[in-house]
Computed example of a mutant assay.
Amino acid sequence: MTVQLRRVYDQPSDGDGLRVLVDRLWPRGLTKERAAVDLWLKEVAPTTELRRWFHHEEQSFDEFARRYRAELADNPAVAELRRVVAEHPVVTLVYGAQDPVHNQAAVLRDLLA
Results as ranks from 00 to 15, higher is better:
A77Q: 01
L41M: 05
K32Y: 08
R34T: 12
N75W: 08
V101M: 13
T47K: 09
Q59R: 13
V85Q: 02
E57T: 14
L72M: 13
A113P: 05
E58A: 15
L93A: 10
W53D: 14
H102S: 11
Q98H: 15
E87A: 13
L81Y: 01
N103M: 08
R52A: 14
Q104V: 12
A79V: 09
A65C: 15
L108P: 02
H55W: 04
R83N: 08
L5N: 01
E43G: 05
D23S: 08
L50F: 13
A70F: 09
T48W: 02
G17L: 03
V85W: 01
H88M: 10
V44K: 02
A106Q: 11
A35C: 03
P27F: 14
A106F: 03
R24S: 12
R6W: 04
F61C: 13
T92M: 02
A45Q: 04
F54W: 12
P46W: 04
E43W: 00
V90A: 00
L25N: 04
L39A: 06
Y9P: 09
L5R: 02
A77M: 03
A45N: 06
T47W: 10
Q104N: 15
D38H: 04
H88D: 08
W26V: 07
G17E: 03
D16A: 02
E71S: 12
E49F: 03
Q4C: 11
F64W: 12
H56Y: 10
V44D: 04
R69C: 11
V78W: 04
D10K: 13
A45I: 05
L111G: 00
R24L: 09
W26I: 07
Q104L: 11
V44N: 04
L18D: 00
E43Q: 08
A70E: 15
P100E: 05
T47R: 10
E71A: 13
P46I: 02
L81M: 07
W53M: 12
G29T: 11
L112A: 01
R109Q: 13
S60W: 09
A113I: 03
N75K: 08
V78C: 04
T48M: 05
P12S: 13
G15D: 15
K32S: 09
N75A: 06
L21N: 06
L50E: 13
